[in-house]
Design a protein around this nucleic acid. Structure first.
Lengths: 226, 226
DNA sequence: GCGGGTTTACTGGCATACAAGTATGCGTTA
DNA sequence: TAACGCATACTTGTATGCCAGTAAACCCGC
């Protein structure tokens, strides 16, 4: 976390700052409890305190930072209950979505999902972890959009970011092979036009995702909220 | 929407402004497409532009306002898809919660829920609509907390606010008697320790809540997003 | 009357200045 | 030595000034 990006002064600066800081926090480059200074970041990027401050407000609204008046601004610790809640919400919502989707999915969608899974395999085979995470994101978003609820994904995305934060910080090597197999199982349920099967596959997928979180929590107690 | 509240200068002003504006928007006193001015609000309340501006940023993050640079800040129109998504998410999540709860609910909780429903009846009988809405909020929050997922409610609350906005603006007289009966049906499912019954009751409750939204939308096209 | 360029009064974006609370290190004091 | 008080260097909170961009009223020429 030395230089940071260069600001494009032809564009509004607050969104640039917000996006950069958000990514850095989610990727763990700015770890929980890290202290952020309006003045320092402003100086380093050649802008005043004000836009930095406004970016902090947006981050705080997302639950990524906390402002303690007259004390400082800090990267939020990861709230165990927040992550568990995020997982629970995703399971409830996405399983509902695929159940609906099992009754409406057409062949074009199924082919598209197959192609996505192929790309996921390709990313894994070239050891492109970041690429895989992005494709995983896209897979789930695609399901939401296909169900006609892109707006739902907007909400889920915010929750997913907290989960991704945990993934990055714990530097956990997740079993990509298993994840891809679970994606396949979901598509298989859709192809069979079997709502129960698709739902079960999705629930299994999202349950196992955090199955080892207690272990992570005890291994890295310092990054979690008290 | 004339005077606004008086600011307590011993407390931070931004949260006061934020809360006031948020309530005014949800209650429909600031209707969709209403124009807000940093300068004007600041002058009226005796503060500078800056805190007002920061309150706007927070509102924008919640989807209640939109800032159009060099043009003005406006109350967001109600996004049809956002409201539908909010309803879908609530149904998925809350039905999962009551299903879990049906297996863990103890008598103390059931008694408490009964007492809540009694209070709801009392509010209706004294024509206290605002009181009923607050009690409705509390009923659903209570279920989430009892399931051990208070953090889930934090998310649902944000979604609920968009739905409440619609309620207020359409000035719709909802059938409180039916709502209370549905609450009773949910508690009955819990008392029977029957997850399927409880889930079905919750889904019915949350589905019928917006069943007449298309009608509202065609009656008030001006308050919705294009 | 009507079309088109220009002025003017606004808007929010950003920079800067000042105010007030907090942490910290040091010196004094009991 | 330990506890206290205080100077000092931070922090964020708020106010204000300036800028660029927008939009609508305006004036002028036709």
């Amino acid at each position: 976390m030395q230089a940071g990006p260069s600001i494009d002064f032809t564009q509004p600066t607050v969104p640039q700052l917000h996006e950069w800081l958000r990514g850095a926090i989610i990727r763990g480059e700015l770890p929980p409890a890290a202290r952020l200074s309006e003045t320092e970041i402003g100086n380093r990027l050649g802008v005043s305190r004000q836009p930095v401050r406004e970016a902090f407000i947006r981050l705080t609204a997302e639950g990524l930072t906390e402002v303690r008046p007259q004390r400082g601004t800090y990267v939020s610790p990861i709230s165990l209950s927040a992550v568990l809640s995020a997982r629970l919400i995703r399971e409830a919502v996405e399983s509902d979505l695929v159940r609906m989707l099992a009754e409406t999915a057409d062949d074009a969608l199924l082919d598209r999902l197959d192609a996505e899974i192929d790309q996921q395999r390709a990313a894994v085979s070239r050891q492109d972890v970041a690429g895989f995470v992005a494709l995983d994101d896209r897979f789930h978003r695609l399901l939401a959009e296909a169900a006609g609820h892109e707006a739902v994904w907007q909400v889920l995305e915010g929750l997913k970011s907290q989960m991704n934060r945990l993934r990055h910080i714990s530097a956990r090597a997740f079993d990509t092979g298993k994840l891809i197999a679970q994606h396949q199982a979901i598509v298989q349920g859709l192809r069979a036009r079997d709502p129960a099967q698709a739902e079960a596959a999705m629930r299994r997928h999202l349950r196992e995702l955090l199955i080892d979180m207690p272990e992570i929590a005890s291994a890295h107690p310092e990054i979690f909220a008290p």
